Amino acid sequence: MGDLTSELGINRPSLYAAYGDKEQLFHEVLSHYHETVTASDRLTVASAECAKDLVQQLLASCVARISGHQFSPGYLMSGAMADLSCLSEGLVSDITERLTGFEEQTADRYESFGVALEEAQQRAAKLVFIITGLSTYARSIPDPAKPSRMANSFTRE
Rank of each mutant, 00 (worst) to 15 (best):
E35G: 10
G2A: 10
L43K: 14
A39Q: 14
E7S: 12
L58K: 05
A17C: 05
Q121I: 04
E104P: 00
A51D: 10
Y75T: 10
E157Q: 14
N152M: 07
L43A: 15
L30F: 08
F129A: 13
A151W: 02
C50N: 15
A120V: 03
T155H: 02
G90R: 08
T132Y: 05
F113Y: 10
G68K: 04
S14Q: 14
L59C: 04
L54Q: 01
A125I: 06
V29I: 12
S72I: 10
C62V: 14
R65M: 08
E118N: 09
R109Q: 06
G114H: 09
C86K: 12
A151R: 00
R12K: 13
L8V: 02
E103Y: 03
S61D: 14
I130W: 07
S135D: 02
H32A: 13
Q57A: 15
L87W: 00
Y137P: 02
R123W: 03
K126R: 10
G79C: 05
E23I: 00
P73S: 11
Q57M: 14
Q57E: 15
S135W: 00
S61A: 13
T36R: 10
E23C: 01
C86M: 15
K22C: 07
S72Y: 07
I130Q: 09
G2T: 10
S47D: 14
A60L: 10
R123A: 05
A17P: 01
A145G: 11
R12T: 13
S78F: 07
S112M: 08
A60S: 12
G133T: 00
A145P: 06
S153T: 09
V29H: 02
A124C: 00
M77K: 03
A39M: 11
Y137C: 03
I10E: 02
G9Y: 04
A51C: 08
V115H: 04
D143K: 04
D3C: 07
M150L: 13
H34I: 07
C62E: 15
V37P: 01
T96Q: 12
C86I: 15
P147S: 00
M81Y: 05
Y19V: 03
F26V: 15
A17V: 04
C50I: 08
A51H: 09
F71M: 12
E7K: 08
Q105V: 08
E119M: 06
E7Q: 11
A39I: 11
S67K: 01
T96L: 10
C62G: 13
S31M: 08
D108S: 12
Q57C: 11
A60T: 12
V55M: 05
E111N: 09
L99V: 13
R98C: 10
S88C: 01
G133Q: 01
R149A: 15
T38V: 15
S47P: 09
